[in-house]
Design a protein around this nucleic acid. Sequence first.
DNA 1: GTATACACTGGAACCGTTTCCAAATGGAAC
DNA 2: GTTCCATTTGGAAACGGTTCCAGTGTATAC
Lengths: 336, 336
Amino acid sequence: MKERGARIGDVAVLAGVGVGTVSRVLNGGTGVRASTRQKVLRAIQELGYHADERGRALRAKRGNLILVLVPFFTRNLYVEILRAIDRATPPDSGYILTVMNVESPQEKERAFALASSDTRLAGIISVSLTPPDGFAAARRTDVPLIVLDAPSEEFPAIEFDHVYGGRLGTNHLLGLGHRRIGFIGRSQDPFVRSGLRAVGYRQALVEAGVAWREEYVRVGEYSREHGLRDALALLDLPEPPTAIFAASDLQAIGVLEAARLRGLEVPDDLAVLGYNDMELAEYVGLSTVRLPRDELARYAMEFLEASWAGALARPPSPLRPTLIVRRSCGAASDGG
Amino acid sequence: MKERGARIGDVAVLAGVGVGTVSRVLNGGTGVRASTRQKVLRAIQELGYHADERGRALRAKRGNLILVLVPFFTRNLYVEILRAIDRATPPDSGYILTVMNVESPQEKERAFALASSDTRLAGIISVSLTPPDGFAAARRTDVPLIVLDAPSEEFPAIEFDHVYGGRLGTNHLLGLGHRRIGFIGRSQDPFVRSGLRAVGYRQALVEAGVAWREEYVRVGEYSREHGLRDALALLDLPEPPTAIFAASDLQAIGVLEAARLRGLEVPDDLAVLGYNDMELAEYVGLSTVRLPRDELARYAMEFLEASWAGALARPPSPLRPTLIVRRSCGAASDGG
DNA sequence: GTATACACTGGAACCGTTTCCAAATGGAAC
DNA sequence: GTTCCATTTGGAAACGGTTCCAGTGTATAC
């Protein structure tokens, strides 16, 4: 039932020094005699003193909140990224993670309005959200911002290498002996993000000397329903694929359902590969391409810390996904 | 590339009034002549002034951060609760949502240490986490705390009515004509939280005049594997149940898998009902008992707001779940 | 016209820290 | 014992608000 904690002045009095000295001990402590530091530390200990971050934030130019903007954060990938960011946040640093969920244009506007002017902020991480036009001009430049999993010309950004991911998955299926490999994605346009997996898919086929067939590629939303529908279309071809690579786990789930409807055994009659490694994938034994979220979060935090330290940080090149082999692809390792 | 925003003094000068008057206009504005208020508002507008929350927090006793402590926030239920809290947070109120993910005893300790002393905090929402011993004594009493989805004697708490949830699900299956209803939960102990669903199940059976059978009840972890194993055990009984009520969706997924293994059609040969309504449930068409997360979040926020206003708020009684009918239970509504 | 009450307003003090500057201290060199 | 310089130290000022108090202005009552 603490009425109110000790303040820096109380520590100074108890230690018999000035507040400036206590402050110096608190922050790095250079230029303080060892014996003096001891006295101060003892006083801090005795009073159970913790610096009040409010006062700190006011005097220092910097705030102490890390704002994470994230769209639809109930989606598994985003939750996983959030968790990774949470773990990458140094504890006891005074930094606190704040989250804004963005699910509509209004919310996006509000979120970036806050991001542009709130002085409590020390840094901003924008996940899969490209800052709106005019944001760069309106914002406080002393608060570093990094964009994750989205392109940006105005701001430093870290992305996943989806072309590589597309190649990785396709090569895996090729390696298992498949030559008729279907692809269900959301776009084939190499200039939009969602089309990059398709680019990788095509590259891998070409490199392996396997013909790319137009009828083996279908595009639709990242949803179970679309995966189901597109998979049925592929399976009903005169010469159906023996493996299907879906650009999202949700679509892959639909593919599994389509196989069941057509009486096909997975992976014996049809190999299925997903993308994202959402939680669900593990439950249904779906092999999938996993995005390196921890790495992403680590780089993001490193970027912020470097910026605070005044360094001119450069974000790394796109991060490469890895392959998670489970039952659905029939890899030798699990005897499917 | 804003160098630095306008301060309250700039507004005062432009409006030709004192800073005190600007402050009064900013906060409620009682006791300010209408014409004066207009001048001030115009100046605020012109300068694009936003009060600096750092200074505000320092002078007012209250912080402006709402801290949410949540265990394993990647789990769907918690994400959904977080989202509900996010939506229940009044925008433009200056309050920001901060999240701490707790996945280990160390993290819990650190989280509550922060919660007990950080002056930036305006309120604390502890989700499924009972504050540790000694916390009540150590914390700042002027920061309201509410516990969600966990019992607490020391602090106001809002819980879900799991007994009701157990009855609700069981009654639904009874209403569909089932008399041999299996239950797969995590505990039968009426004194632990995870056992309450089993209590409701038993109550509903008894009230309907249906015998409660020991062999129809199995307990294990909230996981797909345990659901699968326990479902197989039930289905291999001499007189197997025609419906299975699982105390978690994860276990229910396992039940669906068990049905498939035994060649049973769902819902015709076996009706399946889950609990929680996680995202996954929708994908697989699982009927389930849904916990009212939005309501929970709304009450939590109302509690905090009432506390800030100085009112002596009482949390409401346990919140009642609702039934979500999909394909897996064979309710008439979808002709299963 | 004056007294009185009341509504409104200006500005100093304060919240808890960091930072800056001047002053004090200590030790080395002579 | 002085002198000089580098190191250490104390404390005032500043950060940007809110709050309080005293003072001004206005209206009402007589």
